[in-house]
Design a protein around this nucleic acid. Sequence first.
DNA 1: TTGGCGTTATAACATGAGTCAGCGTTTCGA
DNA 2: TCGAAACGCTGACTCATGTTATAACGCCAA
Lengths: 246, 246
Amino acid sequence: MATPLTLRLESFARLSQDDRAALDRISRGSVREVAPRRDLVREGDTPRFVHLILDGWGCRHKTLPDGRRQIVALFIPGDFCDLNIYLLKRMDHNIGAITTMRVAQITRDEMDSVTETHPRVTQAMWWDGLVSTAVQREWTLNVGQRTAYERIGHLLVELYFRLRAVGLTEGHSFDFPLTQSDVGEATGLTPVHVNRTMKELRKDGLLEMERRRATLPDLDRLIDASMFNAAYLHLDREGRHLDAND
Amino acid sequence: MATPLTLRLESFARLSQDDRAALDRISRGSVREVAPRRDLVREGDTPRFVHLILDGWGCRHKTLPDGRRQIVALFIPGDFCDLNIYLLKRMDHNIGAITTMRVAQITRDEMDSVTETHPRVTQAMWWDGLVSTAVQREWTLNVGQRTAYERIGHLLVELYFRLRAVGLTEGHSFDFPLTQSDVGEATGLTPVHVNRTMKELRKDGLLEMERRRATLPDLDRLIDASMFNAAYLHLDREGRHLDAND
DNA sequence: TTGGCGTTATAACATGAGTCAGCGTTTCGA
DNA sequence: TCGAAACGCTGACTCATGTTATAACGCCAA
């Protein structure tokens, strides 16, 4: 049975039936439901679990003393939040739900028992961690160098590829639960400017939005306009180059 | 013998004499010297080594097709560039020298042989990786939300703490080999604006620069002005709060 | 000592993005 | 079914930062 998690990990390592069963087991252990806009983990907390997103969208966010907020990562189904984070004594950021979100809370022991017996899974999880930090680097580039138009375009394309990898796209469309404020917090822009910019993307035929669903009618042009290079997602086991039509 | 590496790792795990000797051994294996402004690893390369900075400063950087460049991380002595990166098939960014830089090139086998026999070292290296990605998140916040003044202040304070952890500060001073262009690429600002802003920091008594050496005369005020919160550096084994005078 | 080049400095001007303010629309709970 | 709150949209104005240009400084190699 293909879950977002197995789909995602399989883009890196070939998993056996037994590997998949083990992943399934830890996904079913302790499942928690989080209401939209609620935080699951707060800065200063002592990390206790590895969280796996089963359903819904979430984010990692940091706040400055005067209230400015930055979303530093977005989570979709199949993402791990915090592999190995239990090595740190305190969280330096918050993890929150964007939509209603179902997460599996995996203890350190459960984690260890899976990795001890399933080397492929271990390898895939390490890879998962490396890819997450690659995404983080790309986000630094995104806010540091790209214009508003490019930034938002880039975010849309990234989400498209990530959602596609876990089977959550239909054609060039996908559910898009972020508000314009959320997009602003993820890209370092104000909501007003996000609004202006998304309007421009729409005008240029690069984006359609309808009832929380996004369509990217001309993906190639959007990739181009936002200078998107999928290499950092390491979606491909062999390191070949992906293009929009694969 | 205390090297930047052992000093750094020891801020997390207590190392034995034997652990330190093992680290020393891998530091001496294959040492490579890189000229200033030269790249050591290029985007698209297949990762072959874990690199450890022995001496000098370096950076991780990414480039857009039209030439805009972002420094996404700075490396100082004692930093590992790429723990476990060999799991990825191709580099998605470049690693370059800022000053003349000496690095140890550690093979996967050397790495494995150390970690198999030195659990404390293994743990410390995992922690090192987690801290690097925490720094990356903070940089995303930095470029995304802080003003130019805060951004540069924040960068200075971060470097101060990191350099101090490896014994490379004297009082509130440290060698600072970055040009104003470099600072711009690390903060997402133009060199002209970096110049203006550093002038203002100087005027406000928060920074002195003299012949590639920086002094932070009033660290507490700079920490305040840049909304710096050291938690993300996880410098402290027990997760206590550090202040500027520890 | 000279010349060249990378770096710092600064002035004048341009602009992308922020701010403030208001209004319509959708969503959702009571 | 109603009302309130959240969200999306837009206009007018401001401001932080970018752009372009030029000059001075400092360091190093010839």
